[in-house]
Design a protein around this nucleic acid. Sequence first.
DNA 1: CGCATGCTTCGATAAATGTCTATGTTGACG
DNA 2: CGTCAACATAGACATTTATCGAAGCATGCG
Lengths: 124, 124
Amino acid sequence: MSNNKVLPLAEPDSDAAAPCCPPLTERPFTADEAETAARMFKALGDPVRLRLFSAVASHEGGEACVCDISDVGVSQPTVSHHLKKLKEAGLLTSERRGTWVYYRVEPSVLAAMGKLLTIAPAAV
Amino acid sequence: MSNNKVLPLAEPDSDAAAPCCPPLTERPFTADEAETAARMFKALGDPVRLRLFSAVASHEGGEACVCDISDVGVSQPTVSHHLKKLKEAGLLTSERRGTWVYYRVEPSVLAAMGKLLTIAPAAV
DNA sequence: CGCATGCTTCGATAAATGTCTATGTTGACG
DNA sequence: CGTCAACATAGACATTTATCGAAGCATGCG
């Protein structure tokens, strides 16, 4: 199916975690960089997805099954739909263990997004 | 002393800059928090807006007039529309000086978003 | 004045998105 | 097996959004 490769995540080199782009403040983004980065921001640009993501990210052990986090005010298929989007954006990974499917955050992507938002140190 | 700091984002506690929410990893977001934070992420969730924002943020002096940044492949009214969205999201401010309108980034909001993406240091 | 320039606002429209119900699929269990 | 529970997929529908061209406001200048 559509198990499209997302974001070429960073290899743990030393600092890495910058799969796509420099800080937003460093230089104007190219069209390609903007396309890539926007996909990640867009994934978090929905309140339901943000709650789901936060629920997974803050859950004990760093992972949660759908049943643990599906109380966000929308139907079960909608939850599933949003989790899929988050997965496609590279923010979450999933794994089935028996009856349940567990979701887990991809920390490197989180870090990469954080870097986008840093203020260029020597600027100003 | 190499920079092995895990996430050199904004200094903790250095400035407020967090008008909305704790880090995404700290605890599950409430509906209200998610609504607020999603608005900011959504503003950066469009490639054109991301390019415009990056162009302003990286422009010399920290500000740019529309004429400096409007070469992003869409019509001028569309540029204006996106700049308005960024302003409504609190990411940019604008000021008219003579013939031109200058846009400038709101650094505290940038920092606040960065904090959302930090990994909780010693959580759990 | 009158006109050119920079930017915003106004409608219109096609595409994308979020949501639902209904249905599939996969695994556990008796 | 048969059935139930947990998730995922499919299709439908309403709303939002990105975009454009045209028109409207300012501001500066001759």
